Amino acid sequence: PNKKKTSLLNRFFNGFNRWFDNITSKYIRVLSKFADRSSITVGLLVLFCILTWGTSRFLPSGFIPSEDQGMVYVSVTTPQGATVERTEKVLDEVTRIAKQIEGVDNVTTLAGYSIVTEIAGASYGMGMINLKNWSDRNISVNEFIAQLTQKTKGISDAQIEIFAPPTVPGFGNTSGFELRLLDKSGGPISNTDEVTKNFIKELNASPEIQNSFTSFDATFPQYLIHIDYDLAAKKGVSVDNAMSTLQTMLGSFYATNFIRFSQMYKVMVQAGPQFRKNPESILDMYLKNDAGEMVPFSTFVKLERVYGPEVLTRYNMYMSAMINGEPAAGYSSGEAIAAVEKLAAEKLPQKFELEWSGMTREEILSGNQTIYIFALCLLFVYLLLAA
Score class of each variant (00 low, 15 high):
V168S: 07
L148Q: 08
E67V: 15
A146F: 09
A98D: 04
S140P: 03
E143K: 03
G70K: 10
T167P: 06
A164F: 03
I162H: 04
G176M: 11
I129S: 00
S114N: 11
K89S: 13
Q80N: 14
G81H: 00
G127T: 07
D105T: 05
S175E: 15
L131D: 07
T77A: 02
M128C: 05
P60F: 10
E88A: 06
I160W: 05
T52E: 15
S56R: 15
F63C: 04
D68E: 14
G127W: 06
I129C: 02
W53S: 13
K132M: 12
L59G: 01
V107C: 04
K89M: 12
V76Q: 04
N130F: 06
A98T: 08
A122W: 02
T152E: 11
F144L: 07
F58L: 09
Y124S: 00
M71C: 06
I115T: 06
F163S: 03
N106M: 08
V76S: 03
A164T: 06
I145K: 14
V72N: 03
Y124N: 02
Q80S: 14
A120M: 06
A82W: 00
P60S: 03
A82E: 01
D92C: 00
V74L: 14
S66P: 04
D105E: 14
E102P: 01
G81I: 01
S175K: 09
G103Q: 10
M71T: 13
